[in-house]
Design a protein around this nucleic acid. Structure first.
Lengths: 218, 218, 218, 218
DNA sequence: GATGAATGAGGTTTCATTCAT
DNA sequence: AATGAATGAAACCTCATTCAT
């Protein structure tokens, strides 16, 4: 959370803004931060707008100046954070190095982002893994579209590796992307639940070896 | 769903019971079936007790004779179904054949159970993957304990395969169990969302090859 | 008000009903009576559902069992009363006697109904005379349609009188109907505001003479 | 509306005022014009101060510099317009000609004023005919006092006509004034609702004949 | 034992009004 | 003097739960 409040300019440029506008942006961030903490802890339906307003130390009316309604607030929260995550993951797989290195980088960044944004990870897993009924109009679809678009890009890393002979054709590239993503999620889930018993591995190959090395003895 | 209503003896013995008791059990099952259908379709918070009572064709008061409150009803629903699933999965990995065959059997049964119980799968994925906030007291923990117990047993399949040389030691057996489970879940999730675009594979090796064959070209 | 509570079977038959149903009807009437008193005194927007519930001595939730929402309650109130009034007025102009007697009867019944239902008259004048913005969907239209339909019937009394030579053709029959209605309303309005200074005349001819006798000296 | 904004000197003299004061008067007029348009269209309770401020292109705070609160603004609006109307009606019945011509003139001016100030007419009818609950403190009384004062003056026209033998004594002069006023209102109401089906008559005698000629055939 | 009418706390949202800038 | 962001009371409405019948 601290990082969220402090972290400036995430997607929203604060360059040439009046004091007023900068203040409004800061207030918005405060509200989203309070909302994130609460939603993440108790879930969408168990958090009231009053609660969020109180946590953000604003009047309820002020909350409604920034967000049309509860759903709108929630969507803004999830989408803005999702964008940050997507950007970081894309940077990882578009970074330098061969396909192998890209995968390592992705696994590493995934861990870092999550370690630093635990509240959002809880929310995000709830949104993408759990059947989420909260989001009547579109967020669900929008999030899933984003995830899918990313998985396609990840699939292309596998595909490219297969084409240049670095990877074997053990499965459909998209299936591999889905599989890698879900395995990482599983490790993250274990870590979220009990960080001490199941730490997220520092070395990405601990996870990747499941894919790299064959299980069956030849 | 029909199977749920009709399906006798799932965990609850109906052997030597009075007519009264048998009727009560049948009523209870009706209620849970109606609740499952509604929760699965709309989510815990978007289903009212009135709605469940109406769907089950009982008075609201009768519902409360069987379940102390909404949460209690939900817990009973999830736990009883989870038991059925757990039993089926355990049977799969305790069945005949070597470790490889056990894994294949598990992947197959996982698919079958889910295909036949889509409403519950939706609910279950929401509960186990998504951070589930519904269940303030204990269900969460109880479910996760069950899942973990099963994962330990699955891990022991990998371990045994490693010991007798059938499997390579590519990773920690528990990690492998988690990974396999999550990959299957990922495929199920894809299937739940769009059964036509992403059918759950008939041949378990489509999934298992991700583990069996190494990705990296030697 | 007393008359409203006491007045049984006004349009709603209470003949072959179970005790339950009779009680529900009585409760509904209590609610409408409380609502009428409040709306009539303070206006639609200045009365809260809590207030109505308290006045009717029911819980707020019970109010909503009977009426979907505030507007629904208001519409039911206005329409049911309007029907009573319409019926009484129609009876007056369909009663025995020639056209002249019909008009006298109408003026008389108008006065009686209003004297006995002052709260509703206030509401009704507000609805039909004032531009009423309360009634988003349809009540406005429905009320005006009713009023217009009645005015047409009243016009036909004038028309018939003209045809059989009892009346002179001093103006368009519909215009005469509108004029008579509005003159009665004006007298009622004066009476509503200060019953002592401006009593509604016992003798209908006090009002009707405005129409019967010509003002200009020949 | 244009006439309202442009129309100078309506009751408020702008003669020897500083630029400041003239500007304030102009601003006030802008605000009242915006408020009139909105109130007339949507009704007192369905218009927010924010809305009025926005329509008048002032800050909400500025609105409150001119009017203590919403009710105050509304009262000012209604009273100032009512004064304009009263003045015009008084001029009509004080104008040249005998009693008959005064009545004709009144009917004519009534039509003109209303045709040119439809938004206010809607509001005014709502205020004077409908039981108006908006105006808790005094406006109601003040308006009605004005109306009554005018009706007394109109009554004196009838009275004078009776004294000099031009009119017959068919009814109490005040009752006749009330009746004429209400009949005109009724025609205006019809016109407001559907200007095409019920045009306000060009010839005042169409309305006045109801009074002038006796209905009953002698 | 079964019923479902009654309850009222608590949710979301609006808007008249204030006051620091 | 003008602004408009901030306020929070109060409105409408839902629904988990109880209890008299």
């Amino acid at each position: 959370m601290a990082c969220l409040r402090a972290g400036g300019g995430q997607g929203l440029k604060t360059g040439n803004l009046s004091r007023r506008e900068r203040e409004r942006l800061w207030q918005r961030k405060e509200m989203l931060a309070a909302a994130l903490a609460l939603f993440s802890e108790k879930g969408y339906h168990n958090v009231s707008m009053q609660e969020i307003a109180a946590a953000a130390e604003f009047a309820i009316g002020t909350l409604y100046k920034f967000f049309q309604n509860k759903e709108d607030l929630y969507k803004a929260l999830v989408l803005e954070q999702a964008d940050r995550f997507e950007a970081a993951f894309l940077a990882a797989i578009k970074g330098p190095g061969d396909e192998l290195e890209k995968l390592r980088s992705f696994v590493r960044v995934r861990g870092e982002m999550c370690r630093n944004n635990l509240p959002f990870v809880r929310l995000f897993l709830a949104e993408t893994k759990g059947a989420s009924y909260n989001l009547k109009a579109g967020l669900d679809a929008e999030i899933r579209r984003k995830v899918d678009a990313f998985l396609e890009k990840l699939a292309r890393v596998f595909e490219s590796g297969m084409k240049n002979g670095r990877f074997q054709k053990i499965a459909d590239p998209y299936a591999l992307a889905v599989a890698l993503d879900s395995v990482i999620d599983a490790f993250l889930l274990l870590w979220v639940e009990s960080p001490e018993r199941h730490p997220y591995p520092e070395d990405p190959d601990v996870i990747l070896n499941i894919f790299f090395k064959g299980l069956i003895n030849p």
